[in-house]
Design a protein around this nucleic acid. Structure first.
Length: 392
DNA sequence: GCGACAG
DNA sequence: ATCTTGTCGC
């Protein structure tokens, strides 16, 4: 850890003029990582096998674009279910696919800067919130394993954010990084060795070995050469609850179902976060203020693609002033069955009476084709804004 | 001494 | 993480 680098970030928790020993948080975080590392489980849970894998979670955070100053972001949890296709046109035994069965997003406010080696400070709090919300609203959908955008044991103290999240919450986790992390035991030279090594076929991999001999993880080719000619690979590491071999097996299973080099649940969480951020940006141009993010996230969380489409059609059919408040729209003017208006429009109006019609239309236009079959409970049964806004 | 460092 | 531009492929 380079202290000059840390100080140059102007951490709000310490003054730039402080001497290195006066950075309590860094020391605290470091010892927390050492404590957690001692509890890390790097062998398979008893009874684990790839055959029992049913659900896989993906966690990712997307950042606000454009606006300077405030550092807001959207954290997303997606849960996918592994489905075995009955129809095997080839002689292979199991052709499988992954379907999104759960999706949740929360607004996060990042006060703290990103510091290499301490990613957990920024991200794990949001992941824990998403976990609590999952356990509260759909405990039966809890995944068998969580894929975390970041690394696990591939870390200077062998406790990256994936391990941190897994150990703290007693979960099986895997770290999925898109870039190599370099530190004293796995330095730039070791990293270059790995990057130069060609990985040609799906599943090809080389270990990430530190100068101490410790195996931090794998560089893994996860794209099929026919589909993706680029040399993109991911760097996977044990998070918690698996050995490295099983970690690799789970990742490969999540990768050969989609068209990306990213495991499907992580890819979908990423797409969802980006879609929400795009919508936030559009809303923000019409109506500056913090409520824009909340509306975009609520609409994404609470309404299925189908319900959003219905509401959009309903509101577009009647000519409305985009600047008028939602509360001023007469439900009687909407050309839809009374039950449809009661289930969709009235709850929406109750949630955002003050919002401009144009803002709601923008939020309803969010595109998430990958979630086409995702079912959401009807709006009137949901409680709006509950625990959705957090400040980290 | 300088730059680089998962997201 | 995000911005950018062009390029390749379906």
């Amino acid at each position: 850890m380079d202290l000059a680098y840390l100080l140059s970030l102007e951490l709000p928790i310490c003054k730039v003029s402080d001497s290195p020993s006066n950075i309590p948080s860094i020391q605290h975080w470091t010892s927390l990582q050492h404590n957690l590392r001692a509890q890390l489980q790097d062998v398979d849970d008893p009874g684990w096998s790839l055959n029992v894998l049913r659900r896989v979670g993906g966690l990712d955070i997307s950042f606000e674009t454009g606006t300077t100053g405030t550092n807001r972001a959207t954290a997303v949890l997606v849960v996918c279910e592994l489905t075995v296709n009955q129809v095997n046109d080839e002689n292979e035994g199991t052709a499988s696919a992954m379907t999104e069965i759960y999706e949740d997003a929360v607004d996060v406010d990042m006060d703290l800067p990103y510091i290499s080696g301490f990613l957990f400070v920024r991200e794990v709090f949001a992941y824990e919130l998403l976990l609590q919300r999952l356990r509260k609203s759909a405990p039966e959908l809890e995944p068998d394993v969580f894929l975390v955008d970041g690394s696990g044991v591939f870390h200077p103290r062998q406790c990256g954010s994936a391990s941190h999240f897994g150990i703290s919450n007693g979960l099986r986790t895997i770290g999925v990084a898109k870039k190599l992390l370099c530190f004293d035991d796995f330095d730039k030279a070791a990293g270059e060795q790995v990057e130069q090594h060609m990985l040609c076929n799906f599943g090809d991999n080389i270990p990430l070995v530190g100068s101490s001999g410790f195996v931090y993880g794998l560089a893994l080719r996860t794209a099929h050469p026919a589909k993706d000619t680029s040399s993109k690979r991911i760097y996977v590491s044990i998070g918690n609850g698996f050995c490295l071999e099983s970690t690799k097996d789970v990742i490969l299973k999540c990768c050969d179902v989609g068209g990306s080099y990213l495991p499907e649940p992580v890819r979908l969480a990423d797409l969802t976060g980006r879609a929400i951020e795009r919508t936030c940006k559009q809303i923000h141009q019409m109506q500056p203020g913090p409520e824009a993010r909340q509306i975009a996230i609520d609409i994404s969380n609470l309404l299925s693609n189908k319900s959003r489409k219905t509401l959009l059609d309903m509101l577009e059919e009647v000519s409305l002033d985009l600047h008028q408040r939602l509360a001023s729209v007469q439900p009687e003017s909407l050309k839809r069955k009374r039950s449809t208006v009661e289930e969709l429009f009235l709850p929406l109006q109750g949630m955002y009476p003050e919002a401009q019609v144009g803002v709601l239309l923008a939020a309803l236009r969010i595109e998430k084709p990958w979630a086409a079959n995702l079912h959401k409970e009807c709006l009137c049964k949901q409680r709006a804004g509950e625990a959705m806004r957090v400040a980290l």
